[in-house]
């Protein structure tokens, strides 16, 4: 059973890293600026998922704080970027 969980964890880590790579491709390619912001937002979410996976695989609760911080900062940065694209300035 330990082997099964290890294989599944490696598979999930591979999938999440692949998802981050796809986000990077869209981030580099994105024809418009809002595409890039969307890709960055998804990248943050994938990074949070990766932190959760690391927490499970090392049986440590410290990674929860990583995940929380990544979610918080990701939201703030995405909203700031979206506001900037809409108006050209963040603080009106």
């Amino acid at each position: 059973m330990k082997l099964l969980l290890e294989i599944v964890l490696y598979f999930s880590q591979f999938c999440v890293v692949l998802a981050m790579l796809l986000c990077m491709l869209r981030l580099l390619k994105g024809p418009t600026a809002q595409d890039r912001v969307l890709a960055l937002d998804t990248l943050w979410i994938c990074a949070m998922l990766f932190a959760l996976l690391l927490g499970i695989s090392f049986a440590s609760l410290v990674y929860f704080e990583w995940a929380m911080l990544i979610a918080l900062t990701g939201f703030v940065s995405s909203v700031a970027l979206a506001k900037f694209l809409m108006r050209g300035e963040i603080i009106e």
């Binding site: 330990k2 099964l4 969980l5 999938c15 986000c23 998804t42």
Partner: peptide, 30 residues
């Protein structure tokens, strides 16, 4: 990886199923 060697199948199988589901959906979304 720090997984206990005597982990019971009743825990390992649901966790594994949830992880597989989640990672495939994540990949499909991106």
């Amino acid at each position: 990886m720090q997984i206990p060697a005597d982990i019971s199948p009743w825990l390992a199988i649901p966790v594994a199923l949830l992880l597989i589901c989640g990672s495939i959906i994540t990949l499909v979304g991106t």
